[in-house]
Amino acid sequence: MKSRPSIFLGIIAIPVSALVFLVPFAFIILTAFKNKQQATLLDFSWPDGFHLWNNIVEVVTTRNWMLLTAFINSTILTVASVTLPVIFAAMVGFVLARRKTRWNGLIEFLILAGLMIPPAVVPTIWLLQGIGLFGKLHGPVLIEVAYGLPFSIILYRAFIATIPRELDEAAIIDGARPFDVFFRIILPLLWPVTVTNIVVQSVGVFNDFTNPLYYLPGNANATVQLTLYNFQSQFNTSYNLLFTNILLITIPPLLVFLFFNRHIVAGMTAGAVKG
């Protein structure tokens, strides 16, 4: 099957893919460099001058530095809601992979349900109000944890199933209690999946729009996706500012992509194969 790379196919595929996938990004970047008048034309043209810095300053300082607050909120939301479930999900994945009981079927059903069924939003809001977490950052953190658990559990369970059980048994004979087996033997071995898990979930949470829209009303707690949504109406005519905003909030996931490309792909396939 080894033959030389097809140059012919490449010559067609590379420009086509660039047109389809890269031009929209080029458009975002170009527009972010333009001034208001030129941006309004919505065309794919070279910027008249370098206005990016002015645009950034204007976007960031507008509405009392709201974008900055939003970045802080999004960071807190992402970091907290991605790290918390790592241990919880790994614990579930561990017992689920190791112990066969008649409950396993039900538990797996609930996990799959969490992966497929959309959350019931209004009752969730009602519940958050009931426990006093509505409109505060803690609420959505816990919400994102709950929504992210099924994926993490499936990922961990599949990986733990590949760790030989004899390792646990050797540790048990060495005198390890259940707690030791998990924290000293299993958890350290989960590092590669944990990286995948954290990367995939953090991109998901950072880019999440729907959940903050429902559970984080008000400007004080806005996340970056919400600011973009709010600016969409505010900057209706200032396309340069709108696209500067898009550019700014696309940078963090893009960095993640550059550094963790392989982990993301691994997560996509691992989660998918099981799902």
Binding site: P164, E166, E169, A170, I172, I173, G175, I185, P188, L189
Partner: peptide
């Protein structure tokens, strides 16, 4: 097991990889 005064060697050795 830890209180039985035994030790066990496994076919796969079961060494802790980390």
């Amino acid at each position: 097991p830890r209180d039985r005064g035994i030790a066990m060697v496994f076919q796969s050795y079961a060494l802790y990889p980390h």
